[in-house]
Design a protein around this nucleic acid. Structure first.
Lengths: 222, 222
DNA sequence: ACATTTCTGTTGTTTTTACAACAAAAAGGA
DNA sequence: TCCTTTTTGTTGTAAAAACAACAGAAATGT
């Protein structure tokens, strides 16, 4: 735990807390560190969730298997993102998604139930904690709406352009690197990989974009 | 304001507050009531948002016009739902969606900025308020993920079955009424209305579902 | 450096969807 | 009630996407 103290301290979930406060919070939440390897399932659809998972390092996909066996990537999560916060907070304890580790990860696990139930002792700072989580949730919310915008486009071309221009806006540059490989991007946008590759080539040929592997350049403002 | 006092009091956003507390909150937030007529635009994409809108009655669609002029319905909101909470809370003040009134609405408008900035006086209960909003946000989050699940399905048929079975689960009955008319449902699921109608007929013919107007019956567990 | 595996791009074919145009049914108003 | 308007269902056609199969490029391990 000590090894990751600085990382934990810098996490937005504990933003603005002094060391002594943080220590008490960690104790109150019965915090533990757990390591996952790429490919591990952190949460399986159907699991009863009572803990919050804070990613300190690595990469985790939130996925869903459709009834017909197709994978849907809902989100890709990294350092400082949380898993299951909204689920636990909404008392909706049964997960309906899978959390799959895609790059070896270090995860801080907080027993939220425990603390929120009988929070008399150390948690004068539960207030600050809630405010932080509130901010995190609201940001997630905005991101989910953005994802809805991306996948709500009519054609493969529109989905790509919307996704790329949203990424460009976020990075405040028309030159950026995306987090997905082609298959993952296709799963994220709910389109066929090969059809997507084809459309990307066309967009490159027509001069709208340029790319090499995961580095993209938007040539026109969409 | 007095006219709607009971409705405001019962709203989840003020859950667990005594009358005196509520009064002070409303003052602190400079709360006002505003009426909108069906068709009115409450928020336009691009607007700078600093207030939270709580729907006391009526219906509001959160929509987005794609660059190419197609309408996307992101959410349909009713009594007790809020508009712009996540936006304001994430300090992301420029709206990128439209909020359109679809049935005459009564809306309580709260000046969130004002209060959260200099909250010394009445707001000992700001804590309870934040906790309530936190819960609301987390619920919204779960709903957005459900919407993503719905529209991430591959075919029109799968989208319909996923949507209908999710609705059925929420109402805990295989017989339920949906909130959308056909055009709205098509816009929500991002599909063509006529193609959707055709698929609905087929599903009915094949015995998977039955429906009349907005009343649906799921005949098989999907 | 080489072999092996994974990832990405290309092409033709089949399937699905969007679109347009219209018919039928339902809702609303005078 | 009848007329008008809105909503929903049906059909054929054109366009787009999925799928499959494979080639080429890049990454990985030895």
């Amino acid at each position: 735990m000590q090894k990751y103290y600085q990382k934990i301290k810098n996490s937005p979930i504990f933003y603005g807390m002094a060391d002594s406060e943080l220590d008490r919070m960690l104790e109150c939440f019965k915090a533990v560190i757990k390591h996952y390897e790429s490919g591990d399932t952190i949460i399986r659809s159907g699991d009863i969730i009572t803990k919050i998972y804070l990613i300190l390092d690595g990469e985790v996909n939130i996925e869903k298997d459709s009834y017909w066996g197709r994978r849907i990537i809902i989100q890709k999560l990294h350092e400082n993102n949380n898993i299951a916060l909204s689920l636990v907070a909404s008392k909706n304890t049964e997960s309906n998604v899978n959390a799959i580790c895609t790059k070896d990860a270090i995860v801080l696990i907080l027993n939220y139930e425990k603390c929120s139930a009988m929070c008399q002792n150390a948690c004068m700072h539960h207030g600050a904690f809630i405010r932080n989580m509130f901010k995190i949730l609201s940001k997630e919310n905005v991101e989910l709406i953005e994802k809805i915008e991306n996948i709500s486009q009519k054609s493969i071309r529109d989905k790509l352009l919307t996704y790329l221009s949203n990424e460009s806006q976020k990075r405040k540059s028309n030159m950026f690197e995306i987090q997905f490989n082609r298959q993952e991007l296709a799963d994220y946008l709910n389109i066929d990989r090969s059809a997507m590759s084809f459309e990307l080539s066309k967009l490159k040929q027509e001069g709208f974009i340029n790319y090499k592997k995961n580095k993209f350049i938007l040539k026109v403002q969409v």
